[in-house]
């Protein structure tokens, strides 16, 4: 564990709290992609299946439980509690285009051809692109509530912080995980456009609006 990794994980936690806070205070899941949230549940369940056979640490254990539980809770909020506030007509990204390639890639590029290992790899590839339905929705509507942009910024920061974490681990522990790194770089790259608008508009006190 190093500082980058810890800050990354805390940023990830923060993003989830921000999202739940947004849904509960506005009593609405407007602007949030159900598809992206459903993909995150898939990612966490596929990756953290190792809860049953691999012990890493208490920290690791509780974080995994939290990510699975909170992501399922968010789906519940969107699907049942605040269902009328979700507009499926603007959340139309075809998730098959993400899940399909993630399955195929994980079958080809993995460390070991074993069921749980392939699930782990699949979860890494899927997480890399899971934000796309959300970004697509943002692009379509061209604007976002400020709180939603804070959620995305925290989520993007989590991914960005994992990069110095890998560099640090390379030098201190001699650990290199090419699958996680390549997928992580792709994932972080997807946030660049968003970050540009976030820093130049939202943090200057303006509303998040994309040029028409």
């Amino acid at each position: 564990m190093n500082l980058f990794r810890l800050l990354g994980d805390l940023s990830h936690l923060a993003s989830i709290f921000i999202l739940i806070h947004k849904i509960q205070t506005t009593r609405s899941c407007r602007g949030i992609s159900f598809q992206t949230q459903a993909l995150y549940v898939t990612v966490f369940v596929a990756r953290y299946i190792d809860l049953f056979f691999r012990w890493i640490s208490l920290y690791n254990f509780f974080m995994k439980i939290f990510f699975i539980a909170s992501s399922v809770y968010i789906l519940y909020l969107m699907k049942y509690r605040y269902r009328p506030t979700h507009d499926p007509s603007i959340d139309t990204f075809k998730v098959e285009y993400l899940v399909g390639p993630a399955v195929v890639l994980s079958l080809i590029f993995n460390y070991k051809f074993e069921f749980t290992e392939i699930l782990w790899t699949f979860s890494i590839y899927l997480e890399a692109v899971a934000i796309l339905p959300q970004l697509f929705m943002l692009q379509r509507t061209g604007e976002a509530e400020t709180i939603t942009t804070h959620y995305l910024a925290a989520l993007g920061a989590y991914r960005a912080l994992y990069i110095p974490n890998w560099i640090y681990r390379y030098f201190t522990e001699d650990v290199v995980d090419p699958i996680a790194i390549v997928a992580g770089l792709v994932q972080t790259g997807l946030y660049l456009d968003f970050f540009y608008v976030y820093f130049t508009k939202v943090l200057q006190g303006q509303k998040f609006e994309l040029p028409a």
Binding site: R54, K64, R169, V176
Partner: peptide, 10 residues
């Protein structure tokens, strides 16, 4: 190299 880190990241 590879999964040497034992997938200890979240």
């Amino acid at each position: 190299y590879g999964s040497a880190n034992g997938h200890d990241e979240l």
